[in-house]
Structures are given as structure tokens and as C-alpha cells.
């Protein structure tokens, strides 16, 4: 095979791989939120997918009912859904901290069912279209036969920026240091006069807001429908198992990496693309049970 053939193959593979990386951006955002919440609350937030879906729906409703466009929605939807998350934490999740962690999983699973059911009752199972704003056409990338819509470029930029910003806040700021300390030794941190329960509430709200942000980003790409989160979240769970929830950067890197690998699989052997993440999870469990970035 000559160099030209190889280049041609690469060019053919590019769109799928880039689509995979964009999927990876969502995996990264969602697993990041899960990791932040789990680190602080020791709760696996099964409602994360439903909250992702709520983010997309709130953006769609803001446009359809109030006429508020994409840019304000990018800020408003995470705030609204985050506020719902804060209420959920205060009313329900906070009652479970002294119990087995599995109850947190069961409770949030119940919440996910309620949210999905309510949206399905209101909007039906079919998808709603959310058109991306026109200004993204300026970002359109065209390299020969290869074309990448501007909006997808934006998704990559926005997701990476938010992931990095979250990492910076947690690892490099004073608030972040409180958060990390409270993750390790909550009682001690509380003894120093820091309001740990409030921090837990806000952490949950922030993790939920991240999911909603991902939802708004996803709205113009995928159709906005009640099951969109459930489809995503199980794959994200596998991503979380692969990365291990020990490190923030770990979940970001794992998310992007798995999206990339999924895209490659789509090129090499398409029927395998939906299961490849789960197979990688099995391999990681065999070789590094704590996950790539996890602590045993």
C-alpha cells in the first residue's frame, strides 16, 4: 500500500473518528460530573443521564416557549437543572449518607425513572429538533472532501474548556482544596469550621449542572428526546469503571480516549462499535481492577 492509499484511508476514516471524539467529549463531561459527585458524596448518581436529558429539554423549552436562544440557554439551563439537583440533594439524597452507598444508587435510579417518565408523558417518545445557531457556520471546517460542521468544532472547544476549568477549580483553587480535603476527611474539615453539608449540596448541584451543560451542547447534535440520557449513561458508567473515579483528570482523559477508540471501531468494524467500550472495560478489569487512574 503506497503512501497515497494510506492518506486516502485516513481521510475516509477521519469523519468517523472525529464523531467518536465528539462522543468522547460528552463521555468526559458526564464522567467528570459523576466523579465530582462520587468523590464528595459517595453516591453514584444514576440520575445523571436524566439530568443530561433535562438540560437538553430545558434549552429546547426556553427556545420554543420563551424564545430564549442558544447562548443564554447554555448558562440558564445548567443553572435551572442544577437548582433542581440542589433540591434533590437537600430533600432526598442527604438522608442517605449514613447508609450503604448502594441506597444512593437505588434512590437516584428511582429519580431517573420519575424524570424520564414525566418527560415522556409530556413530550412523547419522539425527538424534538433543536437547530444550532447560524453563527457556527463560520467555524465549518473543510479540508478537501472532509467536512466538519462548525457546531461540532464548537462542542469540542466548549467541552474541553469546561473540563479543564473544572480540573483547575478543583486542583488549583482554595475552594477546590477544601473540596479535596472534605473528600478525604469530612469530619476533620468540618472541625476547621467549613460547612461540609453545604459543600456537599453545592457539589451535587455543580455535578448536575455539568450534566445539564452537556445536555445543552448535545441538543443540536442528537434529537432531544426523553431516552437520550439513559442511552448515554450506561456507557458512561463503563467509562467510569475503566478510568476509576480516583482522579478528575483521569475521567476527562478516559472519556475522550474511549470516544476516540469507539470512532476507530466504527471505521474498522461498525457492528462492534456499541460494545467496544464494554469489552475494554472487561480487559481493564482483568488487568487493572481499580481502573486506569483509580486507587485500589
Amino acid at each position: 500500500m503506497g503512501l497515497e492509499d494510506l492518506l486516502f484511508e485516513l481521510q475516509m476514516a477521519m469523519p468517523q473518528v472525529i464523531l467518536g471524539v465528539i462522543n468522547g467529549a460528552f463521555y468526559a463531561l458526564l464522567s467528570l460530573g459523576l466523579a465530582v459527585i462520587f468523590g464528595m458524596l459517595n453516591v453514584i448518581n444514576f440520575a445523571h443521564g436524566a439530568q443530561f436529558m433535562m438540560g437538553a429539554f430545558v434549552a429546547w423549552m426556553l427556545l420554543a416557549y420563551v424564545g430564549i436562544g442558544y447562548w443564554p440557554a447554555l448558562l440558564l439551563a445548567p443553572l435551572i437543572v442544577g437548582a433542581v439537583g440542589v433540591a434533590m440533594e437537600r430533600l432526598m439524597i442527604s438522608r442517605l449518607y449514613k447508609l450503604d452507598h448502594l441506597y444512593g444508587l437505588l434512590l437516584t435510579f428511582g429519580c431517573a425513572l420519575v424524570i424520564e417518565g414525566l418527560f415522556r408523558n409530556t413530550f412523547g417518545s419522539s425527538g424534538q429538533r433543536y437547530a444550532p445557531p447560524r453563527e457556527f457556520q463560520a467555524l465549518n471546517l473543510e479540508l478537501g472532501d472532509f467536512f466538519l460542521p462548525g457546531y461540532r468544532v464548537w462542542v469540542l472547544i466548549a467541552a474541553s474548556t469546561i473540563c479543564l476549568a473544572t480540573w483547575l477549580v478543583i486542583e488549583r483553587t482554595k475552594v477546590g482544596s477544601y473540596l479535596r480535603a472534605a473528600t478525604e476527611r469530612p469530619q476533620l474539615v468540618q472541625a476547621f469550621g467549613i460547612n461540609v453539608p453545604l459543600m456537599m449540596t453545592l457539589t451535587y448541584g455543580a455535578g448536575v449542572a455539568l450534566a445539564a451543560f452537556a445536555g445543552v451542547l448535545a441538543a443540536p447534535i442528537y434529537s432531544v428526546h426523553p431516552a437520550m440520557g439513559a442511552n448515554f449513561i450506561i456507557t458512561v458508567f463503563a467509562v467510569v469503571v475503566i478510568g476509576g473515579m480516583g482522579s478528575i483528570m483521569g475521567s476527562i482523559v478516559t472519556g475522550f480516549l474511549l470516544g476516540f477508540l469507539q470512532g476507530l471501531t466504527e471505521v474498522v468494524y461498525p457492528p462492534f462499535s456499541q460494545t467496544v467500550v464494554f469489552v475494554i472495560m472487561a480487559v481493564v478489569l482483568l488487568t487493572r481492577p481499580a481502573g486506569l487512574f483509580g486507587r485500589a
Binding site: 441506597y103 437505588l106 434512590l107 435510579f109 428511582g110 425513572l113 420519575v114 417518565g117 415522556r120
Partner: peptide, 21 residues
């Protein structure tokens, strides 16, 4: 009642975990 089954099942989940373990 269609999707209400989902809502009610979810609500039972929540009620069981919170009050009825």
C-alpha cells in the same frame, strides 16, 4: 397509562429507599 408506570415505579423506588427499607 403508558409512561406513568415509569413514574410510579420510580416513586416507589424513592419511597422504599427513603422510608421503607
Amino acid at each position: 397509562f403508558g409512561a406513568w408506570v415509569l413514574v410510579i415505579q420510580g416513586a416507589i423506588f424513592i419511597a422504599c429507599v427513603l422510608a421503607f427499607r
